[in-house]
Structure formats: structure tokens, C-alpha cells
Nucleic acid binder design. Structure first.
Lengths: 183, 183
DNA sequence: GTCTATACGCTGATAGAC
DNA sequence: GTCTATCAGCGTATAGAC
């Protein structure tokens, strides 16, 4: 991917995670990168193409994270590294891409919806698998179904970033402390 | 509030909870209500005014809910009724207003940000108070700080509505089952 | 690849008639 | 209160020069 092209995706991702898919324009990106509107259309003919590219790159990054964390021995360390992703987001005062795009799901282009659904499947499957791993090795003691616990953890992390912005408090910190208590 | 005025707020609320604040226009509302653009401007001169009205009415509804639930004797029943609010949202395939407006918080008009922050304070304070009440009466046995547990419950409920839309699964059901296990 | 120029519908918003 | 008429600016998008 050319330099300009990847920079466009960079800016688009940040704008999506700040103002939502309907809240930014090609002009916003062009201004930041000091290029013209039409240059973006050269790389991404339609806004839908750009939206898809943002989600696909995020999926790629996550799958690389999964591959890397496979070498980590224990499930707890893997979970901590997963939490780190959200900590970095909170420090940058950004919500995660799922928290940014999920609320307006039904109004997104169909192709973006599909990519987003695949992403949610990948994340939920992976968290479920490491929770199962930790349970099997008696590292995790949480009660209830593994899939329920996975959805609970993912949900609380996702929304903590949203509430952090609204409250200006470290909601993620509160939520993570509680995960530590119950896992 | 006149009939038209409240209907405008009705439609605006649903649009915000479907497409976000930046994802709907006066025309969208006008079409649904079979009125003209300018009629909406008569009731709400600027879009900001309308956005504020939506949040304020939601706050009012919540505070009425709190007043009513005060008569309920036990904390567990209060919590269940709180969860009911989210169940109704999921059935209508809507996210909650905090999940709809929170992700784009920094791009909202200042007055809307203020209203939203107040709303988050009210919700968190109330959930915290009923958790404290349940703990005191030995009805709740959860570990960890009460405020951490409050933020965890609110976060998991909020995001479950978002993930329900993306996954087409009953994530709220999964999350609530897990809350029941750990509370 | 990036530019200028341009198309054109939609956006929030206002003025004034009824 | 609601309408018609109108506005200037922004939205995505395309054509063609460099």
C-alpha cells in the first residue's frame, strides 16, 4: 500500500473513531494531509471503499495480534495483552472501531456491515478460546458459561471507552479491576 | 409540549439511536411526519436544540423510572427493572441513547455534551446506590468495589445492545445471565 | 498520482405569506 | 403553526489536464 493511501486510512480510522462514519468527509481527510479531495477518490473511489479498508486493516491488525499472542504461554497474559489494546485507545481518547461503527450498523453500506460482522465473530471467538484455555488450566475460576463471560468482558471493555469520553473518568480502569476480581 | 413537537422528538430520538446525531437530517423527520422542514425549525430553531431536547426527555424518563422504582422494596427487583429498559431497546433493535451519542461525544455541540455528562452521572449514581443497598441487605454478594461493579454492569449492558446489532445474536441475554451469576 | 474545475443533491437555516 | 421560496455551504463524485 502506497504511503498516501495508508495515510488516508490512518486519518479515516481516527475520524471514524471520533466522529463516526457519517461524521467525517473527504474534505476532512484532505485538509489533514494537505492534499485535494480528488486525490482521495483516486485511492478510494467511494467512501464505502474507504470504510471497508479501515475495517479490513483493523481485522488484519487483530489477527496479527492473535498470531503473536499465540506464542505467549498462559491465558491470563493473553487476556492482559488484549486489555492493553483498549488501554491504548483510552489514552488516545478514542473508542474502539466496534464502538464507533456498531451503533449505526443498520445505516452502514452492506459491505461494511459484512466486514464488521466478521470482525465481531473473530474477536468473540478468540476471547472465548483463551477463556476456555484459562479454565482448562485452572487459571480462571469465573462462574457461568464461557461464551457468556466472553461477551461480558468484551462488552464491558467496549463500553468503558465510550463512558470514559462522556464522564472524563477512567471507566476502563474500574471495569478492568472488576474483571480481575471475577476471572 | 404540543403534539407535533413531541412527535418530532420521538422521531429524532429513534433516528439518533439508529443513525447517530450526524446521520439524520430535518428532512428525514419531516418525511416521516409528513410536514415540512421549516415546521421543525419553528419548534427547534437549530439541530442542537433538538439534540438537547432528546437527551433532556430521556433524562426525565429515567428520573421518573427512579422515582417509581423507589417504591419497590428490594434492590434485586430494582436492578431487574433497570435491565428491562435494555431488553426493550434490544427488542426494538435500538441501542441506548448513551451508546448512540457517546462514541461521537467530542464532536457534539457543547450543550449536548453537558446534558450527556449529567445523564451519565445520574445513571451511574443510581446503579451504585442500588448495588450498595443490595450489599447492605446481603442480597448481593459480588466481589470488588461497588462503583467498579456499577460501571461494569452499565458498560456490559450498553455494549451488548451494540453487539446485538452487529452479530444478530442475543448478546444482552448472555450478558444478563453472567450478571446474575456474579451479583 | 495529484491537480483544477465542475456537477448536483442534500444540509441547516431564514424570510415572509397564510 | 405550517407553508413556499430561497440561500450559501458542504457532501460525494467525475472529467480531463499535467
Amino acid at each position: 500500500m502506497s504511503d498516501t493511501k495508508s495515510k488516508i486510512v490512518d486519518v479515516a480510522e481516527e475520524l471514524i473513531r471520533t466522529k463516526g462514519y457519517n461524521g467525517f468527509s473527504y474534505r476532512d481527510i484532505a485538509t489533514v494531509l494537505s492534499i485535494k479531495n480528488a486525490a482521495i477518490h483516486y485511492h478510494f473511489p467511494s467512501k464505502t471503499d474507504l470504510g471497508i479498508a479501515v475495517i479490513q486493516r483493523t481485522r488484519q491488525n487483530f489477527n496479527q495480534f492473535v498470531s503473536q499472542s499465540d506464542r505467549t504461554i498462559d491465558a491470563l497474559t493473553k487476556l492482559k495483552k488484549f486489555v492493553d489494546i483498549y488501554s491504548e485507545s483510552q489514552q488516545k481518547n478514542l473508542v474502539c472501531f466496534m464502538g464507533a461503527l456498531g451503533p449505526t450498523f443498520s445505516s452502514l453500506p452492506t459491505e461494511m456491515q459484512q466486514e464488521l460482522s466478521i470482525a465481531s465473530r473473530e474477536i468473540r471467538d478468540w476471547v472465548t478460546s483463551i477463556l476456555a484455555e484459562g479454565k482448562q488450566h485452572n487459571q480462571f475460576k469465573f462462574q457461568g458459561a464461557i461464551t457468556d463471560q466472553a461477551d461480558s468482558i468484551i462488552s464491558s471493555l467496549l463500553a468503558s471507552l465510550i463512558l470514559s469520553k462522556v464522564t472524563s473518568e477512567d471507566i476502563l480502569g474500574n471495569v478492568v479491576r472488576q474483571i480481575d476480581k471475577t476471572i
